[in-house]
Amino acid sequence: MTDGPLFLATLRLADDALVLGHRLSEWCGHAPVLEEDLALANLGLDLIGQARSLYSYAGTVEGRGRDEDQLAYLRREGEYRNLLLVEQPNGDFAVTMTRQLLFSAFMHPFHVAMKASSDPTLAAIAAKAEKEMAYHVRHTGEWLIRLGDGTAESHRRAQAALDELWPYSGELFEVDEAMRAAIEAGFVPDPEAIRPRFDETIDHVLAEATLNKPKVGAFQAGGRAGRHSEHMGFLLADLQYMQRTYPNATW
């Protein structure tokens, strides 16, 4: 792998945002109420917007002439560097909200910290994303509280969603060699420094929601190295279908 740490760090952030944004777009027209349909589409729009800025910049950093569309639509599964968490299927509404909360509770303080990036473009992207992610944390946190502290059925589903997704939360803090180089260059914050804020948000929400934080022996990982769960191929087939079928199509 000859790609530099700035490219890889930017690409990972872009892949996370695109894949989760795509998952949210799958809810379009299917959410439990109209307001939530709009909310999920808005959350997805924020993430896809962030992905566009990040992919454009990754393409510039890479310097091989790839633009945002080529990076988003023309890479193979093993070339994606997103977290396993964000590619997990939507499941029921509790699963979607839990997945979103775990991601946002980490990414909000991450973007706050990345505003001080040694790289001016990443700092600028973070300054926008930070404001958006604050809304995501609040919205999903309020929902998880409502579900967890709601009926017996909503509580059961919220706890099941948390039990299912919690093992994917460890990957948020994974630091490999490329990431270490990006942290040392000051491009991205050290996820360990984000952990107290993440824990604070999660603990607050889970306490209010009367949900229990699962105890797991080992966390799932592999997405950062391009080893994905079985869901990723189906997601990409859907995401890339148009561009693969009609290359260079525009509208």
């Binding site: 709009l38 909310a39 808005n42 959350l43 809304y135």
Partner: peptide
């Protein structure tokens, strides 16, 4: 507040 998200990204309902 009905929803944090409205008809466009910049508005709430």
């Amino acid at each position: 507040k009905v929803s944090e998200f409205g008809s466009t990204a910049c508005k709430a309902h």
